[in-house]
Write a protein that binds this DNA or RNA. Structure first.
Length: 125
RNA sequence: UGAGUAAAUCACCUUAUCGCUGUUUCGAUGUAUCGAGAUGGAGGAAAGUCCGAACACCAUAGUGCAAUCAUAGUGGUUAACAGCCAUCCGCCGAGAGGUGAGGAAAAGUGCAACAGAAAGAAUGUACAGGUCAUGCUGUAGUGAAAUCAGGUAAACUCUAUGUGGUGCAAUGUCAUGUAUACUAGUGUUUGAGCGUGCACGCGCGAUGCUAGAGGGUAGACAGCUAAAGUUUACUGGUAACAGUAAACGCAGAUAAAUGAUAAGGAUACUUGCGAGAUUUAUCUUGUUGGUUUACAGAAUUCGGCUUAUCGAUUUACUUAUUCA
């Protein structure tokens, strides 16, 4: 697994996302929260991940874009270190719950925590 | 040099590493992907969605009436506009300039603070004049306005002109799925209902329409970026703008790309320290550290308007002072 985040690994199907939010479980490391669901994909990808920032907390599109970019970047850089030992397929959605802006360092540390707790929780079962 | 006015331009940069996305070339095969290379990848407002269009569909979007809304000196400009340019007039400013919702008050209705006897209905008080007599006439006094065909139309109104609707989630093709099922009402050529309020006309229309309850899909491609295009030069025009020539080929994402990190530099501000100048508390400059670098993110595409915006630069002009 490399540091890439191509189109295939993005969660796009509206149906799957609805299913994810209604049936999925979640872990959180404030201000981040990850919803996940065990599933399977038609193509070979193991994970499909989406990123979301509430319009309620960030009114301006620039701020939302900025945070989504930071989230994607942090996910991209750290997913390989935590996901190598996981075998089943998962759909993931990472949410940003905070109301204030942030920087890359804090997002990175929180992302590590989040992925760590996720991988531990999943590998138990 | 100070103060100011009006236009125009720019919107931090460079390198390295790791990524995202469009196009294209080559190679590999499991024929749809992978790998490698090359090359594009946010704005002046991309924003608000306020006007005007292109384009698409709604019977050939057709006629009349009504309503609504918009515009409002004059002339020009444009595909079009409520925009823009020029100019007249009013108001503001010492000026460069700014600003205006600038058609009509003898069609009608309404409204007018304070002051004042009285505010659209009539005349009161004082003085003077005049008459047989009388607010009959003038002056004073209040006020923006006191009979003047008064003011007011960012009050109704009238006049002139314009105005069909829905918007790229339009629309078309392919794929996938399915229910021409059930209940009630209504209707089938003597026509329910639909297409804009009404009327006419025209068209669609029975596997219909309305209501209830319920089921399914929600993917791909086209539309989708060559355009009333951008830049430069010349010509015409006071100008908006138009014409000619040359060059360029300039984002196309879709849970939505254009990013992250590190280093260095630049701009502005500033703490401390140092130097210089003088008007002795200001300016110029060196260095170290710190803080800044705004508003803001394409979503069918253009022309405008409006709003947000740290700052920087250029040009033209006005005015004050000094010098010649």
């Amino acid at each position: 697994m490399s540091f890439t985040y191509p189109k295939k690994e993005k969660l796009k199907s509206q149906k799957l996302i609805e299913q994810l939010f209604s049936e999925g479980k979640s872990v959180s490391a404030y201000p981040l929260r990850m919803v996940y669901l065990k599933t399977s994909f038609d193509d070979d990808t193991q994970f499909k991940t989406g990123v979301s920032v509430s319009k309620r907390n960030f009114k301006k599109a620039v701020d939302r874009n900025r945070i989504k970019r930071l989230l994607r970047e942090a996910y991209r850089l750290h997913k390989s270190t935590y996901f190598n030992n996981i075998s089943p397929c998962y759909a993931l959605m990472i949410l940003y719950l905070g109301k204030d802006g942030t920087d890359f360092d804090s997002v990175e540390t929180k992302m590590k925590q989040l992925l760590d707790t996720f991988s531990k929780k999943v590998s138990k079962h």
